[in-house]
């Protein structure tokens, strides 16, 4: 049976992990490769690396880092951050990334999704969507959640899938950082609306939140950052727990 995926997300700034600091037995948790290998060893199903480096100048470090990650880890990984063109994406795929993730750039230029799907194949193209609930309706936000687009989440999800996205990574800004659980109703609505896999993000705080996500929605994967980085949830313990709840887990 196809398994539900658990995906730790690493935020990278200037080639170093941001926030990844609490593994006692890791000498250098700032090195993304060290932390990534730890997650692979623990049974992570995929990894996402998000480059939050502000300047183009320092993006060269990023490509060099992606090369190192590809050499060292033996599971699929997605990279995102600062991808505005097919050339940007190709540079990262050529460096060894399995998938690339685009967010604001796709809203500003939806044709980019089709171009990427055509050039690289849909399976490489993850469209990340940050959503926020306002007046009982979910809307898309861009530029790290700072700019409202006025576009409804379900409309954009449908369009992104239609244009050739291979997966959608949906982050609920209302839930992100709260540790109160995932935004189940909207995640379920989107996962039923499109025929591509949905990665859910935002709100993971306990093991039960992951169970609720996989039992109450049709999403394919759960992404989280801080609960894994700060060892609040251990991946092997989480996966064992989900197996006892009869959720298909590797």
């Amino acid at each position: 049976m196809l398994k539900k995926r658990i995906i730790p997300c690493l935020d990278i700034k200037d080639g170093r992990t941001v926030k990844g600091i609490k593994f006692l037995d890791i000498q250098d948790a700032g090195d993304p490769v060290v932390l990534a290998k730890r997650y692979v060893h623990e049974g992570a199903d995929e990894l996402v690396f998000l480059d939050i480096t502000a300047t183009q100048e320092k993006r060269k470090t990023w490509v060099a880092l992606v090369v190192r990650i590809a050499q060292e880890i033996n599971i699929p990984f997605t990279v995102g951050g600062g991808i505005n063109s097919v050339e940007d994406a190709k540079r990262l795929i050529d460096a060894g990334a399995d998938k690339i993730s685009i967010n604001s750039a796709a809203i500003k230029n939806p044709a980019l999704i089709s171009e990427l799907a055509h050039e690289l194949g849909s399976q490489c193209v993850v469209v990340a969507i940050d959503i926020k609930k306002e007046n009982e309706e979910w809307f898309v936000f861009i530029n790290g959640g700072q700019v409202a687009t006025g576009i409804k989440a379900i409309d954009w999800a449908k369009q992104a899938a239609f244009l050739g996205a291979g997966e959608l990574l949906i982050t609920s800004m209302n839930n992100d950082g709260t540790k109160n659980g995932f935004a189940l109703p909207i995640l379920d609505a989107i996962s039923k609306l499109v025929s591509i896999p949905i990665i859910a993000s935002g709100g993971a705080g306990t093991q039960e939140h992951f169970k609720d996500l996989f039992t109450q929605t049709q999403v394919s994967a759960a992404l989280a950052a801080s609960v894994f980085h700060f060892s609040e949830i251990s991946i092997p313990v989480l996966k064992n727990y989900l197996k006892t709840q009869h959720i298909p887990i590797r």
């Binding site: 196809l2 398994k3 995926r5 199903d45 291979g166 025929s195 591509i196």
Partner: peptide, 13 residues
């Protein structure tokens, strides 16, 4: 056939 999510993506037995 498009009965389920295609592509078949992820870990399977």
């Amino acid at each position: 056939p498009p009965h389920k999510q295609v592509p078949h993506m992820g870990w399977n037995t």
